Simulated assay, not measured.
Amino acid sequence: MALFDLLGRTWALGIVWQLEGGPLTFRQLQSRCETVSPTVLNKRLGELRESGFVGLTSEGYHLTEMGRDLFAKLKPLGAFSQVWADAVLSGNKE
Score class of each variant (00 low, 15 high):
Arg49Ile: 13
Leu13Trp: 07
Met1Ile: 12
Ala85Ser: 13
Gln18Val: 09
Leu13Ser: 11
Thr64Cys: 13
Leu41Arg: 08
Val54Lys: 01
Ser90Leu: 02
Leu41Ala: 02
Gly14Cys: 01
Trp84Glu: 00
Ala72Thr: 15
Lys93Met: 09
Asp86His: 01
Leu29Cys: 15
Leu29Lys: 08
Met66Pro: 09
Tyr61Arg: 14
Gly67Ile: 03
Leu48Ser: 04
Phe26Arg: 12
Thr10Leu: 08
Thr10Asn: 03
Val54Trp: 04
Leu77Met: 06
Ala79Leu: 13
Gln82Glu: 01
Leu89Val: 07
Gly21Ser: 06
Gly22Ile: 15
Lys93Tyr: 05
Thr39Pro: 02
Pro38Lys: 06
Leu63Asn: 09
Gly14Glu: 13
Val83Pro: 04
Gly52Tyr: 03
Pro76Asp: 07
Phe26Gly: 03
Ala87Tyr: 00
Gln30Tyr: 01
Ser51Asn: 08
Cys33Leu: 15
Ser37Tyr: 08
Ala87Trp: 03
Asp5Thr: 10
Gly14Thr: 05
Ala12Val: 10
Pro76Lys: 04
Leu70Phe: 04
Glu65Ala: 14
Lys75Glu: 14
Gly46Ser: 11
Arg68Met: 12
Glu20Cys: 09
Trp84Val: 09
Glu34Ala: 15
His62Trp: 06
Arg27Met: 13
Arg68His: 14
Arg68Trp: 08
Gln18Arg: 10
His62Lys: 01
Asn42Trp: 10
Phe53Val: 02
Val16Glu: 03
Leu29Ser: 13
Arg9Trp: 01
Thr25Phe: 05
Leu45His: 11
Leu41Ile: 05
Leu41Gln: 04
Ser90Met: 05
Gly78Leu: 04
Gly52Cys: 06
Leu24Ser: 12
Ser31Thr: 06
Ala85Gln: 13
Gln30Arg: 11
Gly8Trp: 11
Trp17Phe: 12
Leu48Tyr: 05
Gly67Thr: 14
Leu19Asp: 03
Leu77Phe: 12
Arg9His: 12
Gln82Asn: 00
Leu45Met: 14
Gly52Thr: 01
Asn92Ser: 05
Val83Asp: 06
Trp11Arg: 00
Val88Asn: 02
Leu45Pro: 13
Ser90Glu: 03
Arg44Gly: 02
Leu56Thr: 07
Glu20Lys: 15
Asp69Tyr: 00
Gly60Trp: 07
Ser58Asn: 13
Glu94Ile: 04
Leu48Trp: 11
Glu34Phe: 09
Thr35Arg: 14
Val83Gln: 08
Gly78Pro: 00
Thr10Asp: 07
Lys73Pro: 05
Ser90Asn: 04
Lys93Pro: 00
Asp5Ser: 11
Asn92Ala: 04
Lys75Leu: 10
Gly67Trp: 12
Glu65Asp: 12
Phe26Gln: 05
Leu77Tyr: 15
Ser81Val: 07
Asp69Cys: 00
Leu41Cys: 03
Glu94Thr: 06
Pro23Arg: 07
Leu63Ala: 10
Phe26Asn: 11
Thr35Asp: 11
Lys73Cys: 08
Arg68Ile: 04
Glu20Phe: 12
Arg44Asp: 01
Thr64Val: 15
Arg44Met: 01
Glu94Asp: 06
Leu29Asp: 08
Asn92Asp: 05
Arg32Val: 07
Leu29Phe: 11
